[in-house]
Design a protein around this nucleic acid. Structure first.
Lengths: 137, 137
DNA sequence: GTTAAATAGGACTATTTTAAGCCTATTGCC
DNA sequence: GGCAATAGGCTTAAAATAGTCCTATTTAAC
């Protein structure tokens, strides 16, 4: 339970990789996949999600690739999670009420929602900038 | 991502149900499943896990069933999560190193572990006692 | 203008995890 | 002994995740 998806891990690695290359440098998915050690196809999907969220920017065509879409101070771990997996729902009634057969009589929803916001707060508290500083140490 | 399992939800509901019935009262899985609105078979598995962890105590035989194994002040949400789903692993390298192909070169493990402990801390901060008080309000 | 290298993204498949269900003990009160 | 309960192994079903394949589009280089 409470495990992060592979795609999120791919995305986080890609973002920190792009960050170390600097804001300007355009990097191909192939280079990232080779350097980090992932499947190129799958990483590509993660990059597309990051691009839609504005976290990465893409350049099409032969000399194309990706670069960061924002400063590292403006990207949080939560941003990456949401870009790749959508808004988090700790309990399934958050996705859709009819996913829980006891929705109307449930006593836990309030607590679970608070818990979810706290977890979200933790993810929001780390920017890529601070994450990189911790790594460099 | 970061969604709690159904079995955990079942377990949490069962524990709060037992708690409202008082420490002494023995309740059958059938009664709990009917009252809460769950599958009896599946809830039964959750109860077995809770029993192994000492959170619930069982009485076998005709007049058998479950009751709480501890005071509500001594059961945290984290205890229930661990009883039912085992130790949490936010990233799959926590389960087993070879579940990640870039284990040796990974830069994020430190941060992910810290994050995991913080989430665990949140779950640990709520006892069933305090959860019930919030519900009663 | 053709080619080649890149992103974009839809559709599909495979794998893994989660959720259930089934069946057979075993226990213990009546 | 019979019945109503837990105990738990084994199997199946459903859902989510991970990964692949294929085709289009873009654009630099020739």
């Amino acid at each position: 339970m409470l495990q992060v998806s592979r795609k999120f891990e791919y995305g986080l690695h890609a973002v920190t990789y792009l960050a170390t290359k600097g804001l300007g440098r355009v990097v191909t998915v192939k280079e990232m996949a080779d350097e980090i050690g992932f499947s190129q196809e799958f990483l590509s999907k993660a990059m597309q999600s990051l691009k839609r969220a504005g976290i990465a920017a893409s350049v099409q065509g032969v000399k194309g690739g990706y670069r960061l879409g924002k400063a590292t101070e403006e990207i949080t771990v939560a941003d990456i999670a949401i870009a790749i997996e959508g808004e988090p729902h700790l309990v399934r009634c958050g996705v859709k009420a009819d996913r829980c057969e006891i929705f109307s009589s449930c006593h836990h929803r309030g607590y679970m929602n608070i818990l979810q916001h706290k977890i979200q707060g933790l993810l929001n508290a780390t920017t890529i900038h601070t994450l990189l500083k911790e790594i460099e140490r």
